[in-house]
Computed example of a mutant assay.
Amino acid sequence: MALMSETLPFTIMRTDELLDSARDLTDRKEGARAVLGLAGPPGAGKSTLARALVEGLRRRYGPLAAAYVPLDGFHLSNAQLERLGLTSRKGSPPTFDVHGYVALLRRLVVEGDHDIYVPDFDRTLDEPVAARHVVRPGAELVVTEGNYLACELPGWSEARGVMDEVWYVDADPEERRRRLVERQVAGGRTPEEAREWVRTNDMPNAEIVEASKGAPWVKRAFHWSGHD
């Protein structure tokens, strides 16, 4: 992966522009499977963008153009968080099985002749679930997303080493906060509980992520304009 030496300014990117860039990444791999990583703080729209890219590429180029691999499938279960004393820090770097995530990414770039099943996180259950997604043989691009993909932290640099490019996705802090509170309310917390969770957990996690936005391995940093 090429390194960039300067901090990248934020721009507003449209979906069609990002689809073109993602397809360019596939074309440069000349038949090998490419991996695009979307980093950024909680509530920035990473998962929504990742799904939009996968859906858009499939519409343009066929069902094997792209596949979705969310980091959130590698959340530790609530039982493991309780064992480790990390329940109140859910979503922070040590609450993910980063080594399992790296192992899956490595499989994805070397095993292309069979289905590879991918876990996800179920917000209703508040638990990871196995095999919600599948990467089919011949899938050309894996779009993966997660908060810490650009961070210089144990395990995350190994994950980044499997990626061909890393993009940093952001949004206005107040907009991120609003989305995060809505997410927690939808998950069953009261508005007061949701705001407290965001203040004490999501926003500190965001500070960790924000320190990585100018990292030299971030190919581009932008605010996504949404579905357009």
Rank of each mutant, 00 (worst) to 15 (best):
L108D: 07
E111M: 11
I116H: 01
A79Y: 12
Y101M: 07
V98T: 14
R83I: 10
V98K: 08
N78C: 13
D97T: 03
L108V: 05
E111Y: 08
L86T: 12
T95N: 00
A103E: 05
R89K: 03
V98A: 13
Y68R: 13
V98F: 11
R106Y: 04
D97S: 03
R107A: 14
A103H: 03
L84G: 10
L104H: 01
T95F: 00
D115N: 13
N78H: 11
R106M: 04
G112D: 04
D115T: 14
S77R: 15
E82F: 08
T95A: 00
S92Q: 04
S92D: 08
F74V: 02
L76C: 10
R107Q: 12
G100L: 09
G100Q: 13
S88D: 11
L86P: 15
L108C: 12
F74I: 03
K90P: 08
T87A: 02
E82G: 12
D72M: 07
Q80P: 06
I116R: 00
D72K: 03
F74Y: 09
G73W: 05
V118A: 06
H114T: 14
L76E: 05
T87M: 02
T95C: 00
R107F: 12
L104W: 01
L81A: 03
L104G: 00
R89W: 01
G112R: 07
Y117R: 12
R83T: 11
D113T: 09
H114K: 14
A79G: 15
I116K: 00
D97Y: 02
L71N: 04
A67V: 06
V102W: 08
F96W: 10
G85N: 07
I116E: 00
H75E: 12
S77Q: 12
R107H: 14
G91V: 02
F96A: 08
G91N: 05
G100R: 15
D113N: 06
H114Y: 15
R83N: 11
D72Q: 05
V118C: 05
V102Y: 05
Y68E: 07
F96D: 15
S92A: 08
D113L: 07
Q80N: 12
A67F: 06
P70C: 03
G85I: 02
T87E: 01
R83A: 15
H99R: 14
A67K: 08
P119C: 07
T87R: 09
L71D: 02
V98N: 11
L105R: 09
Y117S: 13
D115F: 11
P93A: 14
L108S: 07
P119H: 12
H114Q: 15
L105Y: 09
V118D: 11
Y68D: 06
D72E: 06
P93R: 04
Y117W: 15
K90F: 04
L105K: 07
P94V: 05
I116A: 01
D72L: 08
D97I: 01
G91L: 03
Y68N: 06
L76P: 10
A79L: 13
F74A: 02
G112I: 02
V118W: 09
R83P: 14
D115I: 14
S77A: 13
S77P: 13
V69L: 02
R89M: 00
V110G: 06
V102D: 15
R83G: 13
Y68H: 10
K90L: 02
V69I: 03
L84A: 10
E111I: 13
H75F: 14
S92C: 13
H75L: 14
T87H: 00
F96S: 09
G91C: 08
L76R: 09
A103F: 03
D72F: 05
N78Q: 15
R106L: 02
N78R: 14
